[in-house]
Nucleic acid binder design. Structure first.
Length: 423
RNA sequence: GGAGAGAUGGCAGAGCGGUCGAAUGCGGCGGUCUUGAAAACCGUUGAAGCGCAAGUUUCCGGGGGUUCGAAUCCCUCUCUCUCCGCCA
């Protein structure tokens, strides 16, 4: 969530920024500032009364020790009166604090200065492109046909076991997926990221910490019996490793990577975009997360973009990098770059990674702090990115590398699969 | 699933209902000493809110209660550990 001080300092700027994100209720900023003022007044009122209660109580103790019962009784009466007066103040304070929190949590992160305005993906900015689109032979087909032809992913049986949108990988398909996970993790750890294998379910506090709750509640699978959520990305458990901690400045940056399946209900999405591996309810993904000094986060963002770009280059896939416009960005993000790969048989770009700087939005929720050079406690910045989401990578690898005699895999991939051709 | 024990500051570990935001040790930071380091010694060292400041309020797993006063008593929830059972 946003830091109150940012809103207080320049409410108009905050509202303008929210406008770039197409946030519908900028007036919330004013409401929040008003609530905060009220909170302060109540707090002061409460404090002065409570101070009196405390000091009088101490006097009672002293009087009792001296055996001055009568005087003590008089003081007790005083305290009782004070407490009666305190009761409504304290109740009001609780209400206002809760209101303030509830409203503040509704505000998305403010976009960084270089985030372009815009409402739809059409307004995203292409930062750069790489690789070259392949020329497919005449009989080339989309991946949903290829997976059937080579019998490597079976959606029908997945639907039988679970439901629609759950893929059953098989044979060379299963091996390809496992190999890619292995490769991506190796690639990340070689760059200094520590590998984690997190729990695939999280509690409410964790889901709140990274911003999934309350904003994206409907997107997650939920186990009400135990109040757990299936993770929509390993960003959630991995970033929450440091929740409620004050880390040493010298430990920054903290670089973490992890593989996990990601579970998404994708409620309300349907149509041709969801065909095959384009959109599924469970997909595999390797994630990178960094916890950094606030002065460094934009440098680190560039570093992470480069890191993922090189990974895509090694896969020999045509890609492009987009800077998302305000309207297309996630709730908690201050700036996001999306990576898309070109799916040659579908003739469209598929998102395979999203790299974001959350600045203090997540750390303020999770209370991840560090001590700066002056010994003051400050919030860290958090960033994360996919490296990479598997199904769409697989879709592109299949489509772009298909030949009439099977699918030939890029060198780096075949090194991990142990075979260079799917046939 | 059954029985029991516990949850205190970065860690370990004390804490009679008032003088406890909390002993002590370790660790961290600063200093003395030293050519430098180690050792030793001295000092310092939790978080959050309000306030220019002095200061003040809140926090001893979460929530509730008893009391003039709760880290200390009661209830409840969560988590951890031990034993038994079950089990990949």
């Amino acid at each position: 969530m946003l830091q109150l001080q940012v809103l207080r300092q320049d409410p108009q700027k905050a509202k303008d920024k929210l406008g770039i994100k197409n946030f519908a209720e900028p007036q919330l900023v004013d409401q929040i500032i008003a609530l905060d003022e009220e909170r302060k007044k109540l707090q002061q009122d409460f404090d002065s009364n409570q101070a009196k209660v405390n000091s009088t109580s101490k006097e009672i103790g002293a009087l009792m020790a001296k055996g001055q019962k009568e005087e003590a009784e008089t003081k007790k009466q005083e305290v009782a009166t004070l407490k009666v007066a305190l009761q409504p103040i304290s109740e009001k304070l609780d209400v206002v604090e809760k209101q303030l929190h509830d409203e503040l949590v509704k505000l998305p992160n403010l976009p960084a200065d270089i985030v372009p305005p815009g409402k739809t993906p059409a307004e995203n900015i292409v930062v750069r492109e790489g690789g070259s689109k392949p020329q497919l032979f005449a009989g080339a087909v989309p991946h949903w046909d290829l997976i059937k032809k080579y019998d490597i992913v079976d959606f029908e049986t997945g639907a039988k076991i679970t439901g629609s949108g759950f893929a059953l990988f098989k044979g060379q398909g299963a091996k390809l997926q496992r190999a890619l996970i292995q490769y991506f993790l190796d690639y990340n750890t070689a760059a200094g990221y520590t590998e984690y294998h997190p729990p695939f379910m999280v509690n409410e506090a964790s889901a709140f910490g990274t911003g999934q709750l309350p904003d994206k509640e409907g997107q997650m699978y939920h186990m009400p019996e135990d109040k757990y959520y299936m993770i929509p990305t390993s960003e959630v458990p991995i970033t929450n490793i440091y929740r409620d901690e004050i880390v040493k400045a010298t430990d920054l940056p903290i670089k973490m990577t992890g593989y996990s399946p990601c579970f998404r209900r994708e409620a309300g999405s349907f149509g041709k975009d969801v065909r095959g591996l384009n959109r599924v309810h469970q997909f595999e993904k390797v994630e990178v997360v960094q916890i950094v000094h606030p002065d460094k986060s934009f440098d680190v963002l560039d570093e992470m973009v480069l890191h993922i770009e090189k990974l895509l280059q090694s896969l020999e896939l045509p890609y492009r990098i987009l800077r998302l416009c305000g309207g297309d960005m996630g709730f908690a993000s201050a700036i996001t770059y999306d990576f898309e790969v070109y799916s040659a048989a579908q003739e469209k770009w598929l998102e395979v990674s999203s790299v974001s700087n959350f600045e203090t939005y997540q750390s303020n929720r999770m209370k991840i702090r560090f001590k700066d050079d002056n010994g003051k406690t400050q919030l860290v910045h958090t960033l994360n990115g996919s490296s990479l989401a598997l199904p769409r990578i697989i879709a592109c690898l299949l489509e772009n590398n298909q030949t009439s005699a099977g699918i030939s895999l890029p060198a780096i991939v075949s090194k991990y699969t142990g075979f260079d051709k799917i046939s």
